[in-house]
């Protein structure tokens, strides 16, 4: 087939705007998708990180002497070590506890003035084998104030929040896709009205609906691809800029362990531009075929 444009679509005001609009929508879609990917990675990281250990807190009981508290702690330590499913058990030294509390209570914490709880950290070897209720009951029998914290509640809340944010991101992608399709449908309908006479001549000469649809879909595809590639490049620039800013801000703190985007995810993001162009092309084709079906 010759490369002649049988319809002068490139002169349409509605399709002239298409690359810009598609570019903007793809820009948002790539950012939202990458955000969702980052949140998914973060949720997985927290899930894995916090599922791997359990913390036992033994607050000093009123009336207990230092010796009694130490004895109860040792008994609890022994009970924890014997618990099925738990691995290495470690009593945190006071210096480490002070370090953990310093962001809230300052650097100058004096353990003699402030009774510090004892903290035991135990690694979980086999989560399914650990009976947390039984462990809690046994430890409370030794020291009524003992608290077993498997981080479940905090972790569940955080992962729930991340999942909501991820859903918001995916909803943005869905809305952006819908907006793009609606835009293409209206632009195509505008094109059909604007070129009504040319389309009629093409029909009378023997053109099938698919021949006319090809004119529209080809034009829409290349217009959309042009915009989509620009939008994708800009969004990659923004992602790279934000990642650089995050690295500069967080330095070597814990936040620097935020999961990045792996190669597969980058490839998926790279595919958004051609996918958007194909969706636009398909929307244009369906619009033309559906509209032409109504005329002779």
């Amino acid at each position: 087939m010759a490369r002649t444009d049988h319809l002068p679509l490139s002169t349409d005001p509605s399709t002239k705007l298409m690359p810009w609009l598609v570019g903007f929508l793809v820009f948002i879609a790539v950012l939202a998708t990458s955000g969702s990917m980052l949140l998914t990675g973060l949720a997985d990281m927290w899930d894995k990180g916090l599922s791997g250990s359990v913390t036992i807190q033994i607050p000093p009981l009123e009336g207990d002497s230092e010796v009694e508290t130490t004895a109860k702690t040792e008994n609890i330590l022994e009970a924890v070590q014997k618990t099925q499913g738990l691995g290495e058990v470690r009593l945190l030294p006071n210096t480490e506890i002070i370090e953990l509390l310093s962001p809230w209570l300052g650097e100058n914490i004096n353990p003699e003035n402030l009774p510090l709880p004892k903290l035991i950290e135990a690694e979980i070897d086999n989560l399914e084998a650990v009976d947390f209720e039984e462990l809690n009951r046994r430890l409370r029998a030794i020291s009524p104030g003992a608290i077993v914290d498997s981080h479940d509640v905090w972790r569940d809340h955080m992962i729930g929040l991340l999942n909501i944010l991820r859903l918001v991101g995916l909803s943005v992608v869905a809305l952006v896709t819908l907006s793009g399709v609606i835009m293409v449908v209206f632009a195509t309908r505008g094109g059909l009205v604007a070129h009504n006479e040319v389309i009629e001549v093409l029909h009378l000469i023997g053109a099938r609906d698919s021949f006319i649809a090809r004119q529209f879909q080809s034009h829409v595809f290349w217009a959309a691809l042009k915009g989509a590639v620009i939008g994708a490049i800009l969004s990659f620039g923004v992602i790279w800029g934000l990642a650089e800013m995050a690295n500069n801000l967080t330095g070597d703190s814990n936040l620097s362990t935020l999961p990045g985007l792996d190669t597969t995810q980058l490839v998926i993001l790279g595919f958004i531009a051609p996918i958007a162009s194909f969706i636009a092309m398909y929307a244009a084709r369906r619009t033309v075929l559906t509209t032409l079906q109504k005329i002779m």
Binding site: M1, A2, T4, D5, H6, P8, T11, V198, V201, L202, I205, G206, A207, F211
Partner: peptide
């Protein structure tokens, strides 16, 4: 078709 040359106008039925 005003946007096509005389050649392309005449060629239209064949290309279709």
């Amino acid at each position: 078709l005003d946007h096509l040359s005389a050649f392309d106008n005449v060629a239209l039925p064949l290309r279709i």
